[in-house]
């Protein structure tokens, strides 16, 4: 099972890149390699382009390209929908809750950070697998939209990273 788990670093970087529009606020451990870590480091020198791209992709009042919240990808898109309540329930069973109580709990960045923590803590594979099915697998649709819409290399790298997380998690969930 551990062999097929996505790397903690990949999950952590992807989660932060989704939660944070300013690349300088994403902690990249020294020695971390891989395309996403590299893109974040590069972007830290020119953060404005990333911030603008983040707004355009995820928050733009003139038309969001990729919604960050799982509930918005449900058959009936809405904020704070069933996926929010389910994510809260998962977090709480393990004694956690989001720091930002005024935003939905089913933000893909939070969901990935929580997933990383379950794996890091050695939670059994059937449990992480169930979590994956409940709260990570949906990101396939998000990722394909992100791949199509992203114009900044950081977000293209992010899309590829989430795609490989989905691939390895999918193996594990079986």
């Amino acid at each position: 099972m551990p062999d097929s788990s996505p790397s903690l670093l990949a999950l952590t970087l992807a989660g932060q890149a989704l939660l944070q529009s300013d690349p300088n606020r994403i902690a990249v451990p020294s020695g971390a390699d891989g395309p996403l870590a590299g893109q974040i480091r590069l972007a830290q020198a020119a953060p404005d382009a990333v911030t603008q791209e983040y707004t355009r992709l995820f928050l733009n009042p003139a038309g969001v390209e990729c919604h960050l919240w799982q509930s918005v990808h449900a058959a009936e898109p809405r904020l704070f929908g069933p996926a929010h309540h389910s994510a809260l329930e998962w977090f709480r069973r393990f004694g956690a809750e989001p720091q930002q109580s005024n935003e939905p709990a089913d933000h893909l960045g939070l969901l990935l950070l929580f997933y990383a923590r379950l794996i890091e803590e050695g939670v059994p594979g059937d449990v992480t697998g169930a979590y994956f099915n409940d709260h990570i697998a949906w990101a396939a649709e998000f990722t394909s939209k992100l791949r199509q819409q992203a114009r900044h290399p950081l977000y293209l790298a992010l899309a590829r990273e989430i795609q490989s997380i989905l691939a390895s998690g999918g193996t594990q969930a079986m």
Binding site: L9, L19, P29, F91, E97, P98, Q100, G109, R117
Partner: peptide, 11 residues
């Protein structure tokens, strides 16, 4: 947590 991000967003 390994990279400190978890505690930054969850409590």
């Amino acid at each position: 947590s390994a990279f400190g991000a978890f505690e930054q967003y969850l409590q």
